[in-house]
Design a protein around this nucleic acid. Structure first.
Lengths: 78, 78
DNA sequence: TCTTAACGTCAAGTCAACTTAACATCGGGG
DNA sequence: CCCCGATGTTAAGTTGACTTGACGTTAAGA
């Protein structure tokens, strides 16, 4: 019987900060949520979840989002 | 009925390259698989999967691995 | 007032990122 | 030969990253 597992998430001390940074950077580059979703190839719901919740995207999605927002991955999620 | 979904994975053109880079970088810094697993806080099986398969870690795990391997996330998975 | 775009919330489905455990193989040294 | 460390493979479980759909709220403009 395996213990709880699943994707590695944000450390507690930084939980939720990435979402705030994503939202700020998105506005900085002048994109709507739907615009960012289209730019990186995911649904709007995914962008909403990323901005508002404790959410750990796959590294490939994170890289796409970081490029759209003109920042390195580490600056948003690190 | 939702279409297929799940974590965003590597684009087909680059599938598998990250694993090769992780393995090379790990040896470069002189870590075993178990050593890297302990350093980033995951199981050895996860490192094996990352190095050998089409695998998309969460961005938080990717950042930890990239730090242990002394490289930016984009250089390994981008 | 109405209209529209943007954002927020909820629901239920598919897919895979993680886990432990156990066994097998490989390579090097005694 | 045996031993040990490192690596590879398989299995089955939990958790959550994604999807579409639908509805509600907010803000700005006509």
């Amino acid at each position: 019987m395996a213990p709880p597992s699943g994707p590695v998430r944000a450390p507690e001390a930084t939980g939720g900060d990435a979402g705030t940074r994503i939202k700020a950077a998105r506005k900085e580059v002048g994109l709507t949520q739907q615009g960012l979703a289209a730019a990186v190839g995911v649904s709007r719901q995914t962008i909403i979840a990323m901005e508002s919740g404790d959410y750990a995207p796959s590294v490939y999605l994170a890289i796409k989002v970081a490029r759209a927002l003109q920042a390195p991955v580490e600056r948003i999620w690190g």
